[in-house]
Design a protein around this nucleic acid. Structure first.
Lengths: 134, 134
DNA sequence: GGAGGGTTAAGGAAAAGTGTTTAAATTTGC
DNA sequence: GCAAATTTAAACACTTTTCCTTAACCCTCC
């Protein structure tokens, strides 16, 4: 069974990067082009993001689907919608309005632009009132 | 870019599993063999484990290289070697001898056979005295 | 306008991962 | 011990990822 998601090459680049080396310097050390170092680093960061998303998904297994934030919705309208749906389910959302909006935006920044939802966002809630977005 | 590590098939199986269905029942629902459901579920769990390992690795970025356990080394000799190196760095290892050996073996079982190191193992330590192996 | 740092695109070869089947274990619950 | 549930292995087609090269493009700071 394979190890983590990151290849040796990707780990190597991340380590050098952490040490503050430039892509050019790393390219010289590992004998390749700086363009290659860039793509390897990019792939590494994508893999890390994927690992995070994967574990996020596990929470949705315990959670039930609460509602969908439809594309075009005003982000500021989301909390009351979510609170109302949670109420119906007899659940109390763990977050206040501000925190909720921040969590929402942080969950997947590219799905929002300004105050608008760009793509449908599924909202899940578990028994602890934790919210997850997918 | 792709989402998490889990394929739609894998998520599907995990969801049904969470609901308490057997592999046979799932096989019927998704029109395939139970053996296949097993394989898919196993792959899903492996992917989750890989996601965890991947994030674990990020800790090693804060860590420095402590030493290398050379192929052929007696596993029981590893702790004193590691303690000595940590001493040189002015760091205190967080684990006692037994725990250390267990962590070492658990980190990547296939790299050890019995008491012997089969492949070189790199040892990293962070400021908290946590050890990581790569 | 350069220089230095970073990114992107196109293309290719090798490696790894996925879903499947079939058939043979192995484990678990009465 | 039986039957159901689960796991494993081998093999195959298919898709995706990885690493690499080359060549270009975008910033920012002199």
């Amino acid at each position: 069974m394979k190890q983590g998601l990151l290849t040796d090459r990707q780990k190597e680049v991340l380590r050098y990067r952490k040490q503050g080396l430039t892509q050019q310097q790393i390219a010289e050390i590992i004998h390749t082009s700086k363009a290659n170092v860039c793509t390897i680093e990019k792939a590494a960061l994508e893999n890390i993001a994927r690992a995070r998303e994967t574990l996020e998904f596990l929470y949705t297994l315990d959670a039930i689907h609460l509602c969908t934030l439809k594309s075009g919705l005003d982000l500021l309208k989301a909390p009351e919608l979510i609170y109302a749906e949670a109420e119906k389910q007899g659940l109390k959302v763990k977050y206040d309005t501000i925190t909720l909006i921040n969590r929402l935006r942080d969950s997947n920044p590219e799905r929002f632009s300004g105050r608008q939802v760009r793509e449908d966002v599924e909202v899940y809630i578990n028994n602890d009132g934790d919210l997850y977005f997918g």
